[in-house]
Design a binder for these strands. Structure first.
Length: 583
RNA sequence: GCCUCUGUAGCUCAGUCGGUAGAGCACAUCCAUGGUAAGGAUGGGGUCACCGGUUCAAGUCCGGUCGGAGGCUCCA
């Protein structure tokens, strides 16, 4: 970010923070007994938390907005004054949350108070000089929400009011349009409209049902995924969905992961658990025999479906579910193979993400935390390999020092979608814990048993979540290779049904996913239906086409190609599929 | 889990002051046989999430249960 941009952002954040004060002032006018908590500027806006005698309704928001406009028009200044702790206590005697904050302020720090009209607030600042710097036309209160005091679920629940604010009405409008567009692209909405998947509360929240069209897309993803894995030196494995408690005791999951696991089912006096991870199973395969250094590395991949108990309030469409399929793999290798393996994994990962149209990718490296298992020496080797790989690939990256899991360092890859949102997809993680717990060994050149490195990685993360991200990224208008229906044949009238069948047959024989609309709708309606289903190619056939053994194509984009020889049309679509392009 | 909002036909939603449920889309049947984003008519479809209460009467009011949505680590 340039200095100029940083400065602009800072100015904007100051404006938003002042906006939060104006809102708090308006709320206090409405509820003189309100207890105020904190109100910072956030991305795109601001919020303020209140303890109120009753809950805020959407109607209240409109009233508060009007009241804010009046406060702004009154043109009051933001007067800063510095007070002693004692004075601060007196000033905010009837504001318990503020008092708590005052008590926690270190003595070294100056305590400042900002007075804006009747409203005074304990605040570090800075603020705009006076409210004439705020534009009453370029903010909007968006929603209310519950929020715990200091994010702690044991503390009181406050009411938070979110607002958005920009320096001018045009930017505000752009942001509101952006929000609207995101709503349109919501994968839950599109999932329904395009008949891709469903969730059923009565059959178990957080468990996904893939409809035929969604399954088509998923299989396209998975087929590509498997093929590329074979090309990249992986083998596929399949492992069970449940395992006895021995397995989870050995792995340690019953100790540190118990809360996230489904309750056990008892059978033959043993407890079986649905798997929350695939790793122990892959290790069972490894430990089934003795392995020489000559065999390594092993790269074992599995689209492994795991079950995790997520709190009901955190479930969200496909993004956060209780049963999902990881595109998992474990690489088991010798210490001197680590560097190459990591580089290859990273390359592969970038290749996969780019294949799905994600170009804006950044990396995050998480290093050794205070509490960890494994040798410092191994951590260093692993961490350095990760760092080298990122640098070699020329990725932008951030480092989370001490942010790794206790069992190993990791890289996470984040992609930015077309809406500018970041999603964490790939993760490459070392595991010094499981190799130890399961006593994994290989026989080295010197005949001695040594501990291999185990690397856990997922490229897409989970198929469910990745699918959700794809739906939102493309707004349901997928690249041709992913479309459940790639071409819809539309006979102009029933007279041409036979020719339509012939066309459909040719397209299908070429490997294109094609359907024909034989309904007794008019052609206009058929086009509309196909367009709403975001089908990339509408193959219109009527008298002209039949006579010339040709087709006319209406592309989803609105582009029109008339009288194409059938073979040319087929080839054009095959090319788009091959190149993984949008139509 | 907690707070707020919310649950009416497959979908999107209307339903006033409590008086026994409605629209559009979708679906079915029929008519129309059509040239680039909705042709017309008719019809079927609802324990108003569930349980309880108030009432002569509850989709509507009250309480509870179960879902769904937004939010709950951006720190005066």
């Amino acid at each position: 970010m340039s200095d100029k941009e940083a400065k602009k952002l800072e100015k904007q954040q100051t404006m938003r923070h002042s906006m939060a004060h104006v809102m708090a002032g308006a709320v206090l006018k409405m509820f003189p007994d309100a207890k105020i908590a904190i109100g910072p500027a956030i991305e795109n806006g601001f919020y303020y938390d209140f303890d109120l005698p009753r809950s805020i309704t959407p109607d209240d928001l409109a009233v508060i907005e009007e009241s804010m406009k009046e406060i702004i028009k009154a043109r009051s200044g933001f007067e800063r004054s510095v007070v002693s702790k004692e004075e601060a206590r007196a000033l905010f005697a009837d504001q318990p949350y503020k008092l708590e904050l005052i008590e926690e302020l270190p003595d070294s720090e100056e305590i400042s108070v900002y007075q804006m009209g009747d409203f005074k607030d304990l605040c570090r600042g800075p603020h705009v000089e006076d409210t004439s710097r705020l534009n009453p036309q370029s903010f909007k209160l968006l929603k209310t929400a519950g929020a715990y005091w200091r994010g702690d679920e044991k503390r009181p629940m406050l009411q938070r009011i979110y607002g958005t604010a920009f320096s001018n009405p045009k930017d505000l409008k752009m942001h509101l349009d952006h929000l609207e567009e995101m709503e349109k692209r919501d994968h839950r909405k599109l999932g329904k409209e395009l008949d891709l998947f469903s969730l059923h509360e009565e059959a178990g929240p957080g468990l996904v049902y893939w409809h035929p069209k969604g399954a088509r897309i998923r299989i396209a993803i998975e087929d590509f995924w498997r093929n590329e894995h074979y090309k990249n030196g992986y083998e596929m494995v399949f492992t069970p969905h449940v395992g006895k408690s021995w397995l989870w005791e050995t792995s340690g999951h019953l100790g540190f992961y118990n809360e996230s696991m489904f309750q056990p089912m008892e059978m033959d006096k043993s407890d079986y658990y649905a798997k929350p991870m695939n790793c122990p199973f892959h290790i069972m395969i490894y430990n089934n025999g003795k392995h020489s250094y000559r065999e390594l590395p092993f790269r074992w991949a599995e689209l492994g479906t795991v079950y995790r108990y997520e709190k009901s309030g955190t479930l969200h469409g496909l993004m956060r579910v209780r049963g999902f399929t990881q595109d998992d793999a474990h690489i088991i290798c010798t210490p001197d193979q680590v560097e190459d393996e990591i580089l290859e994994v990273l390359r592969f990962s970038l290749f996969m993400l780019r294949s799905f149209g994600f170009e804006d990718i950044s990396a995050y490296l998480s290093t050794m935390p205070e509490k960890s298992v494994g040798d410092k020496k191994d951590w260093d080797l692993a961490t350095e390999s990760l760092r080298k790989a990122i640098e070699k690939e020329g990725l932008e990256y951030g480092v989370d020092e001490g942010g790794g899991a206790f069992y190993g360092p990791k890289i996470d890859l984040k992609v930015k979608d077309t809406m500018g949102r970041e999603w964490q997809l790939s993760t490459v993680q070392f595991d010094f814990n499981l190799s130890e717990r399961f006593d994994m060994v290989f026989v080295d050149k010197d005949g001695k048993e040594k501990r291999p490195f185990m690397i856990h990685r997922a490229l897409l993360g989970s198929i469910e979540r990745f699918f959700g991200v794809l739906v939102e990224n493309f707004g349901g208008a997928f690249p041709v290779w992913l479309c459940p229906v790639q071409a819809m044949v539309i006979p102009v009238s029933a007279k041409f049904d036979d020719y339509a069948k012939e066309v459909e047959k040719s397209f299908r024989a070429a490997g294109i996913r094609v359907e024909t609309d034989f309904s007794d709708e008019r052609m206009n309606a058929k086009i509309r239906n196909a367009q709403n289903q975001k089908i990339p190619y509408m193959i219109v056939v009527g008298e002209n086409e039949m006579n010339e053994k040709a087709v006319s194509i209406r592309v989803r984009t609105g582009e029109q190609k008339n009288g194409l020889p059938m073979n040319d049309a087929v080839q054009m679509i095959l090319d788009k599929i091959e190149l993984k392009e949008l139509p």
